[in-house]
Nucleic acid binder design. Structure first.
Lengths: 157, 157
DNA sequence: GTGGGTGCAAAGTGTTTGCAAGTGT
DNA sequence: ACACTTGCAAACACTTTGCACCCAC
């Protein structure tokens, strides 16, 4: 069930579309409802699958054409964990500076925020003569289970 | 010109091959000489081009088959900046914790190290119950030129 | 001699795009 | 009506792989 936050995010995106003179089609509605109806991370392919449950006419092309709009709006964050697909995070607007730790074994992803980290990053970038546009700290690690058991039980590959 | 460090890296890789009972072919030698003969970042395609200057018989397939060996040995670091190709860093063994800022416009990459940043990362991971295996901070930014001129002059695309 | 290595070209994979038809406004 | 959108399938870009020949050890 969508929280107030996520409903707000959906509305913001609709406003974003309107402001750019883009149309609200049934396919886009299905995609947007899906994106802001979960707080899980997802891939393009998963989004296609989920959106098709709402409207079977959604095509892969439309998903791929809508994802850039979602990220451009700032409401969804695109991430790359070194896998061969990208992961999207629909919970970004409320926490624009969060980072991720991913367990190399079970792919579990934990989000965290650190004000200190952000300050440090800005300080470093400034010193080097850059202005930060986006930053992504990716920590590949072993999670508790991995350390204790040698493998994680929710490992699916 | 290779520094002592880079010569050592090359020898370490040769030892790595031997220890795995892998052969030192002329093609592999050309690739390895290229990799440890520069301290620049490179893509698979650039490596192919450079290696072919040493031995024209080097094929794309061999480059792609050798890269995993290089990263597995720990002497070369594979990085992903969200572009559709990977970037390799032959200067990794000596500086295993460096991070990168990339200019989104001209693809300029600047490396930096920060002890503070590493400490902070370890502290956070520990708190969350993970042990860090590798970490990669990627900051996408605009470089000085981009800020001043609106675009970087070495932009090649 | 033989098991690993190589080049070539074909296959893979995730993503993008040209086009003709469809549709929100 | 008009411009934006869509689905489809072909195209893409990078990477991987099957195969027959080759070569380091």
């Amino acid at each position: 069930m969508p929280t107030p936050d996520r409903t707000a995010a959906k509305e913001k995106f609709m406003a974003f579309l309107e402001q750019k003179n883009l149309r609200i089609t049934t396919q886009r509605r299905a995609i947007v409802d899906t994106v802001f109806g979960t707080d899980q991370h997802f891939t393009a392919e998963q989004l296609l699958e989920w959106a098709r449950e709402r409207d079977a006419s959604v095509s892969r092309a439309t998903v791929y054409r809508t994802l850039p709009l979602l990220t451009e709006s700032g409401l969804v964050h695109e991430m790359d964990f070194g896998k061969d697909y990208k992961i999207y995070d629909p919970n970004y607007a409320d926490h624009p500076n969060h980072n991720h730790i991913i367990c190399d074994d079970c792919d579990k992803i934990v989000e965290f925020e650190s004000e200190k980290l952000n300050e440090l990053e800005n300080e470093i970038s400034h010193k080097l003569g850059f202005s930060v546009k986006t930053q992504q700290l990716r920590i590949n690690a072993s999670c508790e289970e991995m350390k204790k058991l040698g493998a994680c039980k929710n490992k699916d590959h």
